[in-house]
Computed example of a mutant assay.
Amino acid sequence: MGAGGPDDEENNRWPPWLKPLLKERFFVQCKMHADSHKSECNMYCLDCMNGALCSLCLNYHKDHRAIQIRRSSYHDVIRVNEIQKVLDISGVQTYIINSARVVFLNERPQPRPGKGVTNTCEVCERSLLDSFRFCSLGCKIVGTSTSFQKKNKFASMISDSEDSYSSSCSHGKLNNNIKVQSFTPSTPPPTSVNYRTAKRRKGIPHRAPMGGLVLQY
C-alpha cells in the first residue's frame, strides 16, 4: 500500500509515544538502580520511548519531556495538567483522586453497569457521566479508529435488519425474497422402532366370550 493509506492515517492521528506508553508496565523495580530505595519505575520519557524509568534514570533524560504515572486501585493514571499539554483528551472522563484530576491510561473491567446508568464507554461499556464518550485513553484510541467505526456501523445495520424482520413477521408482510436461516435443530424423523411404538395404541378392553356364563351341574 502506498503512502497515505488507512494505516498511515491511524498512526498519524496520535503521537508516536502514546501507544507504547499504554502498553508499558509501570511500578516495577528498575534493573539499573535496584539497590536504590527510589528504584520504582513510574516515569516515562516521551522523547526516547525506551520503557518505564525510575527517578534516577531521569538524570540521563535532561531537557526531555517526561511524565509521571500514578496508581489508583491498581490501575495506572496520569494527571490531567500533565497529559493535556501533549495530548488531546477531550471525550475521556476525568476523575479527582488525591485532590488532583486524572485520567486512566487503559480500560478497567466492569461486570455490569450500575443502576440508572444512561451513558457508557463506547468501547468497554463502563459507566460514564453523560458528557463523556470514553473511560480511558486506550478506549479513545480504539473507539476513534476507522476499523472500530466500521464494525459499529456493520453491527448497527445487522440490528436494523433484525428489527425490520421482526416487524414484518408480526404484521404478516415478510418479503418472500428474504431467506432467513434458522439455527434451531429440527425434529429427527422417526426410526423403524420408535415409529411402530408411536403408532401402537392401546385398544378398548374386551371380556372373554364365555366370561359371563355360569355353569351349573
Rank of each mutant, 00 (worst) to 15 (best):
M1C: 06
G2D: 08
G2N: 10
A3N: 06
D8V: 07
E9G: 04
E10W: 04
N11W: 02
N12S: 09
W14V: 00
W14M: 01
P15E: 05
P16F: 07
L18Q: 01
L18I: 03
L18K: 00
L18E: 00
P20Q: 07
P20T: 07
K23S: 11
K23Y: 07
R25Q: 13
V28W: 04
K31Q: 14
H33L: 08
D35A: 12
D35P: 01
D35K: 13
S39P: 03
C41D: 02
N42D: 15
N42T: 14
M43T: 06
C45D: 04
L46V: 04
C48R: 05
M49E: 01
N50K: 12
N50W: 05
A52V: 11
C54L: 07
L56H: 09
C57H: 03
L58N: 09
L58V: 14
N59K: 13
H61L: 09
I67R: 00
I69L: 15
R70M: 00
R71M: 14
R71Y: 07
Y74L: 11
Y74K: 12
D76A: 10
V77E: 00
E82T: 06
K85D: 06
K85W: 04
K85L: 11
V86C: 03
L87M: 04
L87G: 00
D88N: 12
I89C: 07
T94N: 06
Y95M: 07
I96T: 12
I97S: 05
S99T: 07
R101Y: 07
R101W: 06
V102M: 05
V103R: 00
F104I: 07
L105N: 02
N106C: 13
N106H: 05
R108T: 03
Q110E: 14
P111F: 05
V117K: 09
V117R: 08
E122Q: 12
E122N: 07
C124I: 01
C124G: 01
R126K: 12
L128T: 02
L128H: 02
L129V: 09
L129W: 13
L129R: 11
D130F: 09
S131L: 13
R133A: 03
C135M: 10
S136N: 12
L137G: 00
G138D: 00
I141R: 01
G143D: 06
S145K: 02
T146V: 10
T146H: 06
S147C: 08
F148H: 02
Q149W: 05
K150E: 15
K151E: 14
M157I: 05
I158G: 02
S159H: 11
S168C: 14
S168L: 15
S168V: 09
H171P: 02
K173P: 03
F183S: 11
T187W: 08
P188Y: 08
T191Y: 05
V193Q: 13
Y195T: 14
R196W: 05
A198K: 13
K199P: 06
R200C: 14
G203C: 09
G211R: 05
G212D: 14
G212S: 13
L213Y: 12
L215G: 09
Q216W: 06
Q216F: 08
Y217I: 12
